[in-house]
C-alpha cells in the first residue's frame, strides 16, 4: 500500500526514508558501456563532501567515535565493570562524569559504551543491507509470485510502527546485544530491499528497450553488476541515516530494559538505571544521554552531507 506508484517520498533525515531515485554522482561517472571511473567518482564525491561544513563535522564525530571505540582499553581511565571509587561521587578531575551507585566510573562506561552502540548501529544495518540486497535483486529479477510475496511481506513489516515491531521481536527473542542487532536489522530490511528492487526494475526495462529482448537467466550476473553501482548512492545514504536511526532505537529499547544485559555498558540502560539518582547527581545521570545525542548527531550530519554530495539535485 505504500508502494503506490508515483507516490513521492521525500528524503528525510533520521526517518531513514530515502527516495529510490538512482540519479547520482555515480551515474555521471559512467563511461560508455557502463564501466565506472572509480577515480573520477571518488574525487568528485570527496570534493562535494568537503564543501559541506556539516558533513565534515559529522565525519569528524563518526571518526572520533570509531577511534574511541577501537582504543577504549587504552583511553578509558577505569574498568567499566569494577568499582573505581565510592558510589555516586560528583563529577571531578578523577571522575569527569562522576561514579554510579556501585562506584563505577561513568566516564569509562560511556567510553566503552561506544563499542556497544557502534556494534549495534553498524551491525544491524550491515545485516539489513546484506539480507536486503539479494532479496531486492531476486524480487525485481524473478518478478511474479516471488516478487509479490516478498514485497507484500516487506509492506507488512512497514505497516507496523517500527518501534512497536522492534519491541515485539525483542520480547520474543529475549534481551541481549546480539538480539538487538537482529531485531533492528529485521525492521530495516524492507528499506534496502525496495531501493534495490526499484533499480533492478529500471535496469530490466532499459535492457528490454535497448536490446529488444527479455532478460534471461544468463544475464543475472550482469544485472547484479549493473544494478548495484546504480543504486549504490541511495543505499549508502540510506544506510548512514539508518545507523543513526538504529542507534536511537537501541537506546529506546535499552531504556525499556529490552537491550543489552548488565554489566554491558549500554548508554540507554545506564541512563534508565541511574535515573533514581537524578535529584542527587543530575550530571552523572544525564552524561550517557549526551553521548547518545552526539553519536546520533554525527551520523545524521554525515548522512546529510553524503546525500548532498551524492545527489546532484540538492548540490548547490
Amino acid at each position: 500500500m505504500r508502494t503506490e506508484p508515483g507516490r513521492r517520498e521525500p528524503a528525510v533525515a533520521s526517518t531513514g526514508q530515502v527516495d529510490g531515485k538512482p540519479a547520482s554522482v555515480l551515474e555521471s561517472s559512467y563511461r560508455n558501456g557502463g564501466e565506472i571511473d572509480h577515480q573520477n567518482m571518488l574525487s568528485l564525491f570527496w570534493r562535494s563532501l568537503r564543501r559541506s561544513k556539516t558533513a565534515v563535522a559529522g565525519l569528524v564525530i563518526v571518526v572520533v567515535l570509531v577511534l574511541v571505540a577501537l582504543s577504549a582499553d587504552v583511553i578509558a581511565p577505569n574498568s567499566y565493570e569494577d568499582p573505581a571509587g565510592p558510589g555516586l561521587m560528583p563529577p571531578s578531575l578523577k571522575f569527569p562524569f562522576g561514579t554510579d551507585p556501585l562506584g563505577r566510573d561513568i566516564f569509562s562506561r560511556v567510553i566503552y559504551g561506544t563499542r556497544v552502540t557502534l556494534f549495534v548501529g553498524l551491525g544491524s544495518i550491515v545485516l539489513a543491507v546484506v539480507l536486503g540486497i539479494p532479496l531486492g535483486v531476486c524480487a525485481g529479477y524473478y518478478g511474479s509470485w516471488f516478487d509479490l510475496i516478498s514485497m507484500r511481506f516487506m509492506d507488512l513489516i512497514l505497516a507496523f510502527p517500527t518501534f512497536l515491531l522492534a519491541i515485539v521481536i525483542m520480547v520474543i527473542l529475549g534481551p541481549s546485544t546480539a538480539n538487538v542487532v537482529l531485531a533492528l536489522a529485521v525492521v530495516r530490511i524492507p528499506i534496502f530491499a525496495r531501493v534495490v528492487r526499484g533499480s533492478v526494475l529500471a535496469v530490466k526495462e532499459q535492457e528490454f528497450v535497448e536490446g529488444a529482448r527479455s532478460v534471461s537467466a544468463s544475464d543475472f550476473r550482469l544485472l547484479f553488476l549493473h544494478v548495484l553501482p546504480n543504486c549504490l548512492a541511495p543505499l549508502i545514504v540510506s544506510a548512514t541515516i539508518s545507523i543513526a536511526f538504529a542507534i536511537l532505537l537501541e537506546a529506546n529499547l535499552s531504556f525499556l530494559g529490552l537491550g543489552s544485559q548488565p554489566p554491558t555498558p549500554s548508554w540507554g540502560f545506564d541512563l534508565k538505571q541511574n535515573l533514581t539518582s537524578l535529584a542527587v547527581r543530575p550530571f552523572n545521570v544525564v552524561a550517557p544521554g549526551l553521548a547518545i545525542m552526539a553519536t546520533v548527531l554525527g551520523f545524521n550530519l554525515f548522512g546529510d552531507g553524503l546525500r548532498d554530495a551524492l545527489d546532484p539535485k540538492t548540490r548547490k
Partner: peptide
C-alpha cells in the same frame, strides 16, 4: 525503592 532513599531524605 532503596536507591531513592537519599532523594526522599533531602526533600
Amino acid at each position: 525503592p532503596i536507591p531513592l532513599y537519599a532523594t526522599a531524605k533531602k526533600t
